[in-house]
Each structure stands twice: as C-alpha cells, then as structure tokens.
Amino acid sequence: MLATLEGAVTAAVLALTAVGLSLVFGVMRVVNVAHGEFFMLGAVLAWWVAHLAGGHAAVGFGLALVVAPVLVGLIAALADVAVLKRVGYDPERTIVATIGILYIIQQVTLMTYGPDARPVEPPFNTRIPLPWFEFTDQGFALYWPWGLSTTSYKLAVIGASGVVLLTVRLLMTRTRIGLLMRATQLDRETALAFGIPVDRVYAVVFAIGAGLAALAAVLIVPISQAHYLMGGDPLLLSFIVVIIGGLGSLPGTVVAAILIRLSDGIISVFFSPTLAKILATLLVALVLVFRPQGLFGGARA
C-alpha cells in the first residue's frame, strides 16, 4: 500500500518527464538525449530560486515552480535554434548534438552549483496517516497504524501532475498552437506549404518538452534532492516509458509511466530493486519485438 503511494508519486513525475520527451520525438523526430539534463536543470534552478527568495518555504517554491520551467524552456529554445536547426534535424546528428548539450549543461552546473546534493523545502508538508485494514475474528477492521503515512505534499504532487498532463492534452487537441504542432508532426513539408512556421513550432515544442521535464523536477526536488548528476535516471526511465507507451501517444506514455513505477515500487519492496530494473528492461525488449509501435501507438504509415 505504501509502496503503491510512493510509486504513484514517482510515476506522476516520470509521466511528466516522459511526456516532454515523447512530444519532442513525436513532433520533431528528435531523440533528445539531453532531456535528463533539462530535468536536472529544473531541480537546480529550483534550489537557486528558493535559496535566493528566502522567506517562507512556500514563496520560494511557488516562484521556482514558475521560474525554473520557463528558464529551462528558454534555454532549450536557444539550444534548438543554435544547434539542432544548424544540423538540419538530421536524426543521427541530433543525437550527437544533444549528447553534447548534455555534457555542457552538466559541466556548467558542476562548475557553478557544485557537486553537492541540496534539498528544497516543500511548501507544505502535513503528515496524513493512512488507514490499514485487517480481517480479525470480529470481522473487517480499519485502523491507523503509527508510521504508515504520507504527506500532503506527495498527494499534491500527484494532483499537480494530473492537472499539467490534462493541460498538455488540451493544448494539443483544443488550441491553435496545438493544431500547428500536430500538422507539423504529420507532414512537415505540407505544413510549410500552408504557411506554418515550422522552425518556430520546433523551438516551441522543444521548449515545452524541456519545460515539462523541469517542472517535474521542481515537483520532486522537495522529496529527493537537487544534484548535478540526477538527470541520468529520468532519461533512462523516460525512454523506457516512451518506448512501451508508444512514441507520441500521450495516454500511452502516462499509462506506461504508472505501470513501470508501480511495478518497480512493488517489486523493489517485495523482491529487489535489481529485479525490478531487469523486468522493466525485459518488458522494453518484449514490446520492441512484438509491438514496435508501442502498447498504445497506432500503426504508422
């Protein structure tokens, strides 16, 4: 039960990160290896903002929640125009280019922020006891054991992630920029022939993708900590999630994130974390063999 809730928190954050990666791949056909570094940058910027803001924890955190994703988005847009556009969005060259961006971001962070892991205080953090139930001789009984609890902040993370994911969905399906993004994704050349500024759409998509990773990191940083090497895991897990969920499929990505994290949490508790990682990797291999378009991806022409 506790494993499930902890799993749900990390699943929510993973879903946000993976949706960013999936969006970038879907629209731009760019495999963004630097995605994890945008995540890390979000966490580190959150620490800076909270640190500089001072005052009540909620002020710094609230500020970080806005400033970090926006800043990271701007940096990403800059990287898109200055680097990815220059290599013509060629699939192989963008992989190499984003590896380069990865190291630049990582090393600059190490030089400025340092090698320490630093916490950000959550804006609120009330302990909420969780009920547990048991079948006794008297029948079904509910009770609140000491030590079994979550915090209001963790529940808020789950809620906030849900809201953001819903917003992304509405952005893609209901708005004009979403329409331009989907048209660009479906047929870049025809999009150009109908006046869609594909370059600008790409920059916006890359910024939104990185911004989502940064937002996920701001949400998780009060629970874990900000560290310059924290980008590796989210990158790897996002790739797993995006492959299982189907490239470019938003619902698929979310379901896959929940699947991976919940099973990871439960298997880790009852067996071992290594087994969980092995099973996740095995699942990816199976999906790649039997459903290359992902569990939820439609067949592509």
Binding site: L186, D187, G195, A301
Partner: peptide, 21 residues
C-alpha cells in the same frame, strides 16, 4: 512558410492531407 501567405494555394501530388486531423 511565407510563400503561401502571398496568395499561392498548393494541391500536392498524392493529396498530402493531415490524415489524423
């Protein structure tokens, strides 16, 4: 992307519709 705005409409070979839309 600036050319269609001048008033040039294009019907490409093979239609090239935005199929999922």
């Amino acid at each position: 992307h600036r050319i269609p705005g001048l008033g040039i409409g294009y019907v490409p070979q093979g239609r090239r519709l935005f199929g999922e839309l």
